[in-house]
Simulated scan of single mutants.
Amino acid sequence: MTTNNYPYQANFETYLKQVALAPITISEYSSTLIDLFEYLSNFNHGYQKDHRVNQLYDRDIQQYMNMLVSERNITNTTYNKVLSHLNIYFKYLFSHDFTQKLPTLNLKGKERQLPSSVSLKWLKELPNIITDDQVHIYTRLVLLLISKGYSIKEFLQPGFYKEFEQIKWQGFEQPFINQFKAFIEPIQVRQSSPDIFLKQRFAGDPHITLAGIHKYLKPDEKKLGMPLKPSQLFQSYVVDYFLKHPDLSDTKLSSNLRLDMVSVLYYHQLIHKMNH
């Protein structure tokens, strides 16, 4: 017989398995919920009376969240992750008639703070940037490919055109891709190369180098009013991905982002520093 360390644990964990969460993620949910209910059992007078989960209110959950901040000094990122776990748990209870209340409904996450080297501005403005013909077409392609999770080393490699042809573009991206293909195809013919970053003038090696790409990016920094250093753009993309997927295991993050585990650890540490 399964022992429940928090209300409806067996039911909830069965549900998490059904939605295909990784075992390590399910374990994180359990740790969060065990900690919540241990805290309520010890410090919440209302819950101590009869231990009924359907009598919890937003003030009870807020009391726990406040404790995490004041006594455990958790970061904003961890705060949001815990709140996400609790949200999903109480929504599950509500949708399965285990409770008639949603005690996390009015609780808000904390604003994430980014290191000065990490700016998400370009990601938010990308739909406008790729339609701006005042910005060089190579600059726009660099931003678009980084937003798909490719590093500049990857897409400047000869042969990347094979990967490029497999990318599924969103609706707002397709007109730009059509524009880029019309731009690059005559150059590909002239340079006898199927690659996508090619010098416009005939050369022994037609491929644009990293230094060559910077010659396009530098003037466009002034036009867009933001730094366009590829390494920082990629860093901000990865940080944004980590923040948007707090429940993914390190193995999954490594696989999805094509990062080694040392890099995954680096990004965890970087994000941890955001609130310190």
Score class of each variant (00 low, 15 high):
Met1Ile: 04
Thr3Phe: 10
Gln18Asn: 09
Pro23Arg: 02
Pro23Thr: 04
Thr25Ala: 05
Thr25Trp: 06
Tyr29Asn: 10
Ser30Pro: 00
Ser30Arg: 14
Ser30Asn: 08
Ser41Asn: 15
Asn42Phe: 04
Phe43Thr: 10
Asn44Met: 09
Lys49Cys: 11
Asp50Phe: 02
Val53Gly: 03
Asn54Val: 05
Gln55Asp: 05
Gln55Glu: 13
Gln55His: 12
Leu56Asn: 03
Asp58Tyr: 14
Arg59Asp: 08
Ile61Trp: 08
Gln62Pro: 00
Met67Cys: 09
Leu68Thr: 08
Val69Ala: 04
Ser70Pro: 00
Ile74Leu: 02
Thr75Pro: 01
Leu83Gly: 05
Lys91Cys: 07
Lys101Asp: 04
Lys101Phe: 05
Pro103Gln: 01
Lys110Met: 13
Glu111Ala: 10
Arg112Glu: 11
Gln113Gly: 00
Val118Thr: 07
Val118Asp: 02
Val118Phe: 01
Ser119Cys: 01
Ser119Phe: 02
Leu123Pro: 05
Leu123Gly: 07
Asp132His: 03
Asp133Val: 01
His136Cys: 02
Ile137Trp: 00
Leu141Trp: 06
Leu143Lys: 03
Ile146Phe: 07
Lys148Ile: 06
Ile152His: 11
Tyr161Val: 09
Lys162His: 11
Lys168Ser: 09
Gln174Arg: 04
Phe176Gln: 06
Phe176Thr: 06
Ile177Gln: 01
Phe180Tyr: 15
Ala182Arg: 11
Pro186Met: 10
Ser193His: 13
Asp195Pro: 13
Asp195Phe: 15
Ala203His: 14
Thr209Cys: 03
Pro219Met: 14
Asp220Cys: 14
Ser236Asp: 06
Val239Tyr: 01
Tyr241Met: 03
Asp247Gln: 08
Leu248Gln: 10
Ser249Phe: 05
Leu253Phe: 10
Ser255Lys: 14
Leu257Gly: 04
Leu259Pro: 00
Val264Ser: 04
Tyr266Met: 02
Tyr267Gly: 02
Gln269Gly: 05
His272Asp: 13
